Simulated scan of single mutants.
Amino acid sequence: MTEIVVTLSSRNLTELQQELKDLHHARDDFDILEFRGDYFEDDEEIIDALYGLRELNKRILYTYRTESEGGYGSDDDYVSHIKYISAHAPLDILDIQYNSYREAAFISHIKSRSIEVLFSHHDFLKTPDEKTVQSIIDGMYESFADYCKVAYMPSHNEDVELLFELLKENKEKYGNMIIIIAMGERGKITRVAKEPYNSAFTYGCLKTPQAPGQVEIKMLREVYKHNE
């Protein structure tokens, strides 16, 4: 089964109010809300925004993407930020950058509060070799992830084929917790793939792509309309 994640584009609470209206109209087109905390400048506004999103009655995935992984957030403040937000705001899934933080005590604490952990790793320039990608996924699983997400920029079609094969193999190995994305135009096919090459989550947008190769959630719902 593939769940559709809509990545929000709002940069402040005023923009979020309009986006909330659009989300209400499109609520059948997605399963999970991804809120990008690195788009906001104030932690208290982030907390207010997350409480406001509860009115949609959808699961909330909180992501704070740092500059080193293609976002706008501070690498230096990453750990203190996710600790603060996860302690004060309502969320169901926390995206944790695998290379930024993986302390076992924190992971255990988060999971004890019924927050699922999604470990992520991104490279917007290239696709690592098979051994490297597999090592990262294995490490995520061994660090007690509920979901393992890797997203890479393919240089050629062989990179996309490699990621598809790794997705299939790791689904067989670990179950429906694997998310593997090839970014950009070349990798769009990974966002709409069916069994056995579909990820646990596929990420889309309402209107404007928030990552290279993202497509609109309306299209994703057509692909996964029966949510097999």
Rank of each mutant, 00 (worst) to 15 (best):
residue 187 G to N: 01
residue 118 L to P: 04
residue 203 Y to D: 10
residue 216 E to T: 14
residue 73 G to K: 03
residue 162 L to Y: 02
residue 21 K to P: 00
residue 67 E to Y: 07
residue 37 G to D: 00
residue 130 E to M: 04
residue 89 A to I: 03
residue 111 K to E: 14
residue 83 K to D: 02
residue 115 I to Q: 11
residue 152 Y to H: 02
residue 198 N to Q: 13
residue 9 S to C: 08
residue 219 M to C: 07
residue 143 S to Y: 03
residue 143 S to G: 10
residue 33 L to F: 05
residue 211 A to S: 14
residue 29 D to H: 11
residue 126 K to I: 08
residue 153 M to H: 06
residue 186 R to F: 04
residue 206 L to P: 08
residue 162 L to H: 01
residue 174 Y to N: 09
residue 32 I to Q: 08
residue 116 E to F: 04
residue 6 V to R: 07
residue 182 A to S: 15
residue 97 Q to N: 04
residue 31 D to M: 02
residue 196 P to Y: 05
residue 2 T to Q: 05
residue 7 T to M: 03
residue 9 S to T: 13
residue 9 S to N: 12
residue 176 N to W: 00
residue 14 T to M: 11
residue 64 Y to A: 00
residue 6 V to M: 11
residue 175 G to A: 05
residue 52 G to P: 06
residue 158 E to F: 11
residue 211 A to N: 07
residue 153 M to R: 01
residue 12 N to R: 07
residue 189 I to M: 10
residue 173 K to L: 15
residue 163 L to V: 12
residue 138 D to Q: 14
residue 107 I to Y: 08
residue 155 S to E: 10
residue 211 A to D: 06
residue 58 K to R: 13
residue 65 R to K: 12
residue 141 Y to Q: 09
residue 114 S to K: 14
residue 44 E to Y: 08
residue 195 E to S: 12
residue 114 S to F: 13
residue 56 L to F: 06
residue 110 I to W: 05
residue 28 D to T: 13
residue 184 G to R: 01
residue 50 L to P: 02
residue 217 I to R: 04
residue 170 N to C: 11
residue 117 V to G: 08
residue 77 D to Q: 01
residue 198 N to T: 08
residue 203 Y to L: 15
residue 63 T to S: 13
residue 170 N to Y: 08
residue 43 D to H: 08
residue 65 R to L: 12
residue 7 T to D: 02
residue 104 A to R: 15
residue 217 I to N: 04
residue 143 S to A: 15
residue 91 L to K: 02
residue 130 E to Q: 07
residue 177 M to A: 13
residue 219 M to I: 14
residue 89 A to C: 02
residue 210 Q to K: 10
residue 127 T to D: 02
residue 59 R to I: 06
residue 87 A to G: 00
residue 189 I to L: 12
residue 192 V to E: 13
residue 65 R to I: 15
residue 66 T to H: 01
residue 204 G to M: 06
residue 198 N to G: 11
residue 204 G to C: 06
residue 16 L to V: 11
residue 99 N to R: 07
residue 158 E to R: 13
residue 181 I to C: 04
residue 180 I to N: 07
residue 170 N to G: 11
residue 142 E to F: 08
residue 144 F to A: 14
residue 194 K to F: 00
residue 198 N to D: 15
residue 160 V to I: 14
residue 196 P to G: 09
residue 9 S to A: 14
residue 195 E to T: 10
residue 61 L to A: 10
residue 51 Y to S: 05
residue 170 N to E: 09
residue 141 Y to N: 12
residue 68 S to L: 10
residue 179 I to D: 01
residue 206 L to Y: 08
residue 148 C to V: 10
residue 216 E to Y: 02
residue 85 I to Q: 00
residue 70 G to M: 07
residue 181 I to R: 03
residue 155 S to V: 02
residue 123 D to I: 06
residue 174 Y to I: 12
residue 8 L to M: 09
residue 215 V to S: 06
residue 182 A to K: 04
residue 224 Y to I: 01
